[in-house]
Design a binder for these strands. Structure first.
Lengths: 210, 210
DNA sequence: AAATTTTAATTAAACGTTTGTTTAGTTTTA
DNA sequence: TAAAACTAAACAAACGTTTAATTAAAATTT
C-alpha cells in the first residue's frame, strides 16, 4: 500500500484512480476498486466527484497541471545555442515521461479511443501546448542558420515518438533492449542515459548543418 | 453498414469486433454491441468463441497473420544498398500502419494495460518479430561500413515511434500538422508522402557516414 | 431419390454478477 | 445546531454467459 500522508480524501481518491485507470483502463476499473484502493466508502466518490467520468476528468486535470509552462522561458535564453536547447528538451522530456509513465499511458490510450470526444480534445490540447515552445525553438534554429530546413512538426513527432514508443510498456521496452525479465525499465538510470544519448545524437545529425 | 460479402459468420463477428474494440476498447465494447454490428444473435458469440476474451484473442490472431514474414526476403536482396532497404522498410511500414491503424491501436492499447498478461506477451512477440529483419538490415549496414555505429534498437524505436506517434489519433495528427477539422489523415496521400520524406531524410542523416 | 437420422446453426429467454449511482440515516466537524 | 463528511444498504440497468428449444443442413440408410 502506498502512503497517503498529508492528503485530503479527495486527493487520495484521485491518486488511487490515476493508479488504477493507468493500469486497467477507464472501463476496466470499477468505482468499488477505486474506493477500496483509497480506503473510502464507495459513495464518497459520487459525493465528491458526481460521477466516475467526472472523476476521470479531474484525474487528467490534476496531473496535467504538472506539465504546464515548461520550456516557455527556455526560448528566450540567449546563453544557449538552439541545439543545446534541444538537448535540454530531450532530457526533460525523458525525465518527465519516465516519472509519469502511467499518466502518459492514460492520455494516449484515451486519445486512441473514440469515446468522450471533449476529453480527447482536452488531452490533445495539453500535448500540443507542450509542443508549442519546442516548435519555436526549432523554428528559431532554422532562422538563425544553425539548423537545416527540416519538417518542424514531424521532427517533434520523431523526438516525442522515440521516447514514447519505448515507454509504451515495460514488456516491450525489455524486449526491444533485449533485457531479462527482472529488468524494470522505468526506474532505470542506464535506460535514461542510453535513450538520452541516442536521441541527442539523432537530433544533432538531423538538425545541424555540416 | 459495411458489406459482409462472402464472409462466414465467424469472420463477420471477428471483423465487427475488431471495428468496435479498436474504437471503444475491449471493456468498452459489449458482446451485445458486437452481435448487433454483426447482425447475429448474442449467443452466437459464445457459441463460436466460448467467451468475449477468447474472441479478442482471435481478433488479434486473425489480423496478426497480415504482418507475418514481411521484410524477411529483403535482407538477402543484394541489388539494394542498406539505405535503400531502409527506404523500403519506411514506406512499407507507413503503408501498413496507415491501412491497419485501428488494429495497431488495439495492439498498443492492450500493451499499455496490465490486464491479460499472456496477450501482452503475444502482442509484444508479434511486434518484435516484425523488428527482427529490420535489425539485421541495420546491423549489416554497419558491418559493411555503409552506416555509422548507431544504437540499433533505439534507431528502430525512432523509426517506428515516429510513424506510430503521428497515428495515435486522427485528432492529434490533425493538430500536429495544423489541419482543419475536415482533414481525415488516415486516407491522405499528402500525409503519407510528407511522413515518408521526413523519415527517410531523418534516417539518412542518422545512419549514413558523411 | 426419398426417407430418416444426426449433427450443426440459430434463437429467445433467463441466469447470476457486477456495474455506477442514489437513498436515507448516522457521525463528525465547525 | 447547522453543515459537512461519511456509511450501509438498496437501486435499476447492463454485463457476459448459459440454457433449452427450434430450425437448417449434412450424412446415412432405405
Amino acid at each position: 500500500m502506498r502512503s497517503f500522508l498529508k492528503m485530503t480524501k479527495k486527493e487520495i481518491i484521485i491518486e488511487s484512480a490515476l493508479n488504477l485507470f493507468s493500469t486497467k483502463g477507464f472501463e476496466g476499473t470499477s468505482v468499488r476498486e477505486i474506493a477500496t484502493e483509497a480506503a473510502v466508502n464507495v459513495a464518497m466518490i459520487n459525493y465528491y466527484f458526481g460521477s466516475k467520468e467526472n472523476l476521470f476528468k479531474r484525474v487528467v486535470e490534476y496531473r496535467a497541471s504538472f506539465l504546464k509552462g515548461i520550456f516557455a522561458d527556455l526560448i528566450n535564453n540567449s546563453s544557449l545555442s538552439s541545439i543545446e536547447k534541444i538537448d535540454f528538451i530531450i532530457d526533460q522530456t525523458i525525465e518527465r515521461k519516465l516519472s509519469n509513465a502511467q499518466f502518459h499511458h492514460i492520455l494516449h490510450r484515451e486519445l486512441s479511443l473514440e469515446h468522450r470526444p471533449e476529453l480527447r480534445e482536452a488531452i490533445s490540447d495539453i500535448l500540443l501546448k507542450n509542443m508549442a515552445p519546442m516548435k519555436t525553438i526549432i523554428k528559431n534554429g532554422i532562422h538563425d542558420g544553425e539548423f537545416k530546413q527540416v519538417d518542424i512538426e514531424l521532427t517533434l513527432t520523431t523526438l516525442l515518438g522515440t521516447i514514447h514508443y519505448l515507454l509504451t510498456s515495460d514488456i516491450m521496452c525489455r524486449k526491444i533492449l533485449g533485457k531479462k525479465e527482472g529488468f524494470s525499465p522505468f526506474q532505470n538510470k542506464y535506460l535514461k542515459k542510453r535513450l538520452s544519448e541516442h536521441t541527442k545524437q539523432l537530433m544533432r545529425s538531423h538538425l545541424l548543418k555540416k
